[in-house]
Design a protein around this nucleic acid. Structure first.
Length: 440
DNA sequence: CATGATGATTCCGT
DNA sequence: ACGGAATCATCATG
């Protein structure tokens, strides 16, 4: 079958009549024929070419062609078209030129490519297409998603999931450093290590996914670029357009990335909330921590209100947080006050301990803070009448050190710490008395 | 499982 | 914002 199987009038035929003031029948004839020819090329492309991209290319070519014609951009083509006998056109496909060379169908493309007018025509196509695409593109410029992306980025940054500069591959390295990332509320040993482990797991997944996406993006971009370059030999594709296409691809991939970031954020948030929940599931402090706290408490029994510095010091030494120290002291004070008898034993133990460990400290710690209560404090408002056992213990204690009795301190406690907030600044200096050697 | 110990939270006053 | 008091929830022990 030599005749084109496809009839000439296609659905998207040029809707406009030819441009010129006198749309004579000859011009429209030519147009018709051109459409027919491109339809032929279309068939040809379908038959020959693998994949439908080139098929689309031909479609586009046809579209542009009609645009171009109706715009009357290039007069010399019209000239050429007019000067050539119509039948020859439809039959041979030498539509670029009036010459009556007749090509067999396989040669048509080659002839087209080799034609002397081809470069000029091609550049015109490019130009027109550039304008068309630009006008389409101009409408749908992307705007707002940038904002959300920034928010997500900031959050991931704050959570320590991604680094500002380069991504820290080693999760262990991050976990190892004592510096708490972002705003972790509690660095309570075990809970926190668990939290960190999970966080680093999330981080790992995030980074590997990110890398995958980036790689896929790169691959797809090069693929498309190559494809377009390849096609640019057949249809008008400017480098600018390729660039734009790359931009579109990147945009798509970055939207995928945003989803990834979003779900990462969600994961971190749930992890975080779980950590906060876990806080309610309390865990007893380590022996070390209770020792340190008790030592401070009993050595400052007259005024068991550690300063901020002292709290920090205690927290550091006990491996707990400052707020935990505050909680502990709050609980301790109230419970001690409520049931002093119960704590006598503990008191003796710790006072003895501090006395032995650092005599100098003791003197400073408990006494210095209450100048109003000298050694005669045993005669305070609430002498330890009920706790005989404690008294003996205290006596033994007294033999250990020449300092005033603990009983005085206890009575002070009973009298109430309440009113006497931090009497002297010297008290603040006390942390040094705690720090030195409680454990050593 | 009952009970006490204990860390955390909440409410309230200062 | 801090501390006291009450309370909750969990741990530890027998």
């Amino acid at each position: 079958m030599e005749d084109p199987q496809r009839p000439a009038p296609p659905p998207p035929a040029p809707r406009r009549p030819p441009p010129g003031p006198s749309p004579d029948s000859h011009t429209s004839d030519v147009l018709q024929q051109i459409m027919a020819i491109t339809d032929q090329s279309l068939d040809e492309a379908q038959a020959r070419v693998v994949g439908r991209t080139q098929f689309l290319a031909v479609l586009e070519l046809r579209f542009l062609f009609s645009c171009w014609l109706s715009a009357g951009v290039c007069s010399h083509l019209q000239e050429a078209a007019c000067s050539s006998p119509p039948p020859a056109l439809s039959q041979s496909g030498s539509w670029l030129q009036g010459q009556q060379v007749t090509f067999s169908r396989p040669l048509r493309k080659h002839a087209l490519n080799c034609h002397r007018m081809k470069p000029a025509l091609f550049s015109v196509f490019c130009e027109i297409k550039e304008k068309t695409v630009l006008s389409i593109r101009g409408i749908q410029e992307e705007g707002p998603p940038d904002d959300q992306l920034m928010r997500l980025d900031n959050m991931l940054l704050a959570e320590g999931v991604c680094r500002p500069g380069k991504q820290g591959r080693g999760a262990a390295a991050a976990a190892a450093s004592t510096a708490t990332p972002g705003g972790c509320p509690n660095d309570n040993g075990l809970e926190h290590s668990d939290y960190r482990a999970k966080l680093s797991q999330i981080r790992q997944i995030y980074h590997s996914e990110l890398e995958k996406y980036e790689q896929a993006c790169r691959e797809f971009t090069t693929h498309v670029t190559n494809l377009l370059r390849e096609q640019s030999r057949i249809r008008p594709i400017s480098p600018k357009e390729i660039e734009r296409m790359v931009g579109v691809i990147h945009g798509k991939f970055s939207s995928i990335q945003m989803q990834l970031k979003q779900s990462t954020c969600e994961a971190v948030m749930t992890l975080r909330s779980r950590l906060l929940d876990a806080r309610r599931k309390r865990q007893n402090f380590s022996k070390q921590a209770t020792e340190v706290l008790n030592e401070y408490f009993y050595s400052h029994l007259s005024n068991p209100y550690p300063s901020e510095e002292a709290k920090e010091e205690l927290a550091r030494k006990g491996g707990i947080t400052v707020s935990q120290v505050s909680n502990w002291f709050g609980n301790k004070r109230i419970r001690y006050k409520k049931n002093m008898g119960k704590f006598q034993e503990e008191a003796t133990i710790y006072t003895a301990k501090t006395a032995v460990d650092s005599p100098k400290v003791r003197g400073l710690g408990s006494q210095a803070s209450c100048p109003s209560m000298p050694s005669s404090s045993a005669s305070g408002p609430f002498p330890l009448t009920s706790s005989g056992g404690a008294l003996t213990a205290l006596q033994t204690l007294a033999s250990l050190r020449p300092a005033p009795g603990v009983g005085g301190l206890l009575s002070q406690a009973r009298g109430g710490w309440r009113g006497k907030r931090r009497s002297t600044a010297s008290l603040v200096g006390d942390p040094s008395s705690v720090t030195p050697d409680a454990s050593n």
